[in-house]
Nucleic acid binder design. Structure first.
Lengths: 214, 214
DNA sequence: GTCTATATGCGGATAGAC
DNA sequence: GTCTATCCGCATATAGAC
């Protein structure tokens, strides 16, 4: 039996992902976790603080891996521009890699993050979107070096589309096959398909003025 | 002064898009609309029925246009396969075209739909996702004809990524410039960028086994 | 740290006058 | 069709015993 705090976070993670934050009551969570209602306020203070705790526990590690992979590769490259597909791989794959590391609890969090990407609430933005935007800026610089002929605004929009494809895949990650399920492709197949798709999208011929070719 | 029913739907549309369904109370809506609380139950019955009404009002026309554009083009082609980019244009552009037709109220609904794409609630699925899935199946057939060498499962996933890129762009459509705003690109620019991006993604070289080249 | 009990307010929905 | 007033349950959060 794991400890109360962890049990609450696990249940919250799953229920927030399935029903959304506002539609999930603390009673739903504590009933699911098999703990007392008052334990939530004792351990976390408020419902919003619980949401932040749920994000912080797993989103930090994902983003740290994103940064470390990029840093390490840039260090190895000694000033040369990185390969486009490599950069996209570093950006896209950590969520799915961690999902598999985390076992049964992984998909819950990944779904939650997938949905959070289209969330405009101020509470979600604070604990989720703000740190993510730092990552995006960092990758935007790397991508600009890999695609030096692509118009800056166009690159920003394409990065936006990359995030959309990734977020949607995360939100519906239950469509991927895990060892126990019948339907759906294994995560590795989907990940590779995603990388191929967005790599080609980033390299698309540009509009009439200002061209990127290869 | 427009009629009460319309005012309620307009406010609901905006607030559902901004805060989400569960986080928006009927009191928020009626206060924003400047109508009496009881009017909601008189005109719509329940809060869920109001949500359905909000979807039905605008999502039907969008999907009808998607179908009509595809039908008309297939009719003109007289049995020949359509061009990939043309198909994607028919699928992707109606939401944005309608958004601009609808003026100030347009972006609210488009954001709502963008968020709904990653919603797994049963209530949202019923009034939104089910009809959409019919459209997707129809387009999947057309795409398979345009990309006959692409593996079927791979095509499904790529269509999934297309939807993700589109949904994310819809959810953040306030980033596009409308006549009165300073920042952001005009919608036409973004739409074209999206079409170019996903067209290239769909045509990406396939994995080792089973290839699609041009 | 964990429980019971409860304060306090907001939620959707309705009754019934006009 | 529109209003006021209200029912009633559920929400978050807390007090205080153990």
């Amino acid at each position: 039996m794991t400890d109360t705090k962890t049990r609450v976070m696990d249940s919250a993670e799953r229920l927030f992902a399935e029903r959304g934050f506002a539609a999930t009551s603390l009673r739903d969570i504590t009933a699911d976790a098999g703990v007392n209602l008052a334990a939530v306020n004792y351990h976390f203070g408020t419902k919003e603080a619980l949401l932040s705790a749920v994000f912080d526990r797993r989103f930090g590690p994902i983003n740290q891996e994103r940064l470390e992979l990029l840093d390490a590769a840039e260090c190895r490259a000694e000033g040369a521009a990185l390969d486009l597909e490599e950069i996209l791989r570093f950006f896209l794959l950590p969520p799915f890699a961690k999902m598999q590391e985390w076992g049964d609890a992984g998909p819950n969090f990944i779904r939650l993050v997938g949905r959070a990407h289209s969330d405009t609430n101020e509470q979600t933005r604070a604990s989720f979107l703000r740190p993510f935007e730092g990552i995006v800026s960092r990758y935007e610089v790397a991508l600009r070096r890999a695609l030096p002929n692509l118009d800056r605004a166009e690159l920003r929009w394409r990065l936006h589309f990359v995030i959309g494809a990734m977020a949607h895949t995360m939100a519906w990650c239950q469509m991927m096959k895990t060892p126990g399920r019948r339907r759906g492709a294994p995560p590795e197949i989907v990940q590779e398909a995603l990388v191929r798709f967005v790599s080609a999208g980033m390299r698309a011929p540009a509009s009439d003025r200002g061209g990127e070719t290869s």
